[in-house]
């Protein structure tokens, strides 16, 4: 029973982090129509910045805020410096076919990931750094009973649920959110309504970068920080989106929790080595029966 609860809580807490990654990916996907493979590279870079700040004996929360800003700034910079010029090139022959028009920006994001990782390596010597958690990561006990979760697990779950709810409110209840949804759903009608879709898209990149940074800071105490330390998180978050369906925000979040629990149960009841096989099995099963994800409405965006 205790083992089961531990698996459940760890899974939920990890699932919450994956959900944040997935949310960031979906925001950019819906706004700009590409999977941003550099996303966790941005987060890694900002985690290094945060770690540098903390090493200077500055308060964790200042570092937290700086990391969020840095992640957002990197996201915005990628949109302005790479994606916008890319969209302007749509006249070139290779970009005239729709499948390539979708593939090329994805490849660009892989290149950006390479740049960010090697730049981090050059700046911070690629050393693996420990990273503190804001609250204790040791087992929590209430009275004499050891609880199957830690203070940090609870912190992560609460923080991330707050962020998920805030993001949903932002998208559904505010004017900016309406502009973001309208631009994602139908760019032309949005532009004809006077919405500055370009700026709105950049905003999506910034938001996505910030969310990714939070996710990065939440796993850093467990994985440490190194140029490649967030690759796994990126891949799991992406798989969550694919399983849940990229066009459905809550679908990807659900996919993330499914994966979080799956991984945690495989880790505890089977062997950590089987994690990827498990993920792959789920992914293949979903792709065979629901090629556009579990929660896709209608046909997937035709790419």
């Amino acid at each position: 029973m205790q083992t089961f609860l531990t698996a459940l809580f760890t899974g939920t807490s990890h699932g919450a982090i994956y959900a944040l990654v997935a949310l960031g990916l979906v925001l950019v996907w819906r706004g700009a129509g590409l999977i941003n493979f550099a996303q966790m590279g941005q987060a890694m870079f900002s985690a290094y910045i945060a770690s540098t700040i903390i090493n200077h004996h500055i308060n964790y929360w200042w570092a937290f805020i700086v990391a969020i800003i840095a992640g957002g700034a990197l996201g915005g910079a990628i949109d302005v410096l790479v994606i916008r010029p890319l969209k302007k090139k749509s006249g070139s022959s290779i970009l005239s076919s729709p499948s390539m028009r979708d593939a090329i920006p994805v490849i660009a994001s892989l290149g950006i990931l390479g740049i960010l990782q090697s730049a981090a390596g050059m700046i911070w010597a690629g050393e693996e750094r420990g990273f503190p958690a804001p609250v204790s990561t040791l087992g929590l006990s209430i009275g004499k009973r050891a609880m199957p979760f830690t203070r940090f697990d609870i912190f992560v779950i609460v923080l991330i649920w707050l962020i998920l709810i805030a993001t949903t409110l932002l998208l559904n209840k505010t004017s900016v959110g309406l502009a973001m949804r309208a631009s994602a759903l139908n760019m032309e009608v949005a532009r004809l309504s006077g919405i500055r879709t370009r700026s709105i898209r950049t905003l999506g990149w910034i938001l996505s970068g910030s969310l990714a940074s939070v996710a990065g800071l939440m796993v850093a105490p467990a994985t440490n920080v190194s140029p490649n330390s967030l690759d796994l998180l990126m891949i799991i978050g992406f798989t969550a989106c694919v399983i849940g369906g990229l066009n459905s925000l809550w679908g990807s979040v659900t996919g993330a929790f499914i994966l979080g629990l799956t991984i945690s149960f495989i880790n505890i009841y089977d062997a950590p080595g089987d994690v990827f096989l498990g993920i792959f099995a789920i992914l293949i099963a979903v792709m065979i029966f629901r090629p556009s994800g579990l929660f896709a409405k209608g046909k997937a965006r035709n790419v």
Binding site: S175, A179, A182, L185, N186, V189, I195, R196
Partner: peptide, 22 residues
């Protein structure tokens, strides 16, 4: 534009508000 250009996924109110956002 031609062809009843609204965004079907948005509500009626959102479609109208969209035009006034700016």
């Amino acid at each position: 534009p031609e062809g009843h250009a609204v965004i079907p996924e948005l509500t009626i109110d959102e479609n109208i508000r969209m035009g006034a956002l700016f």
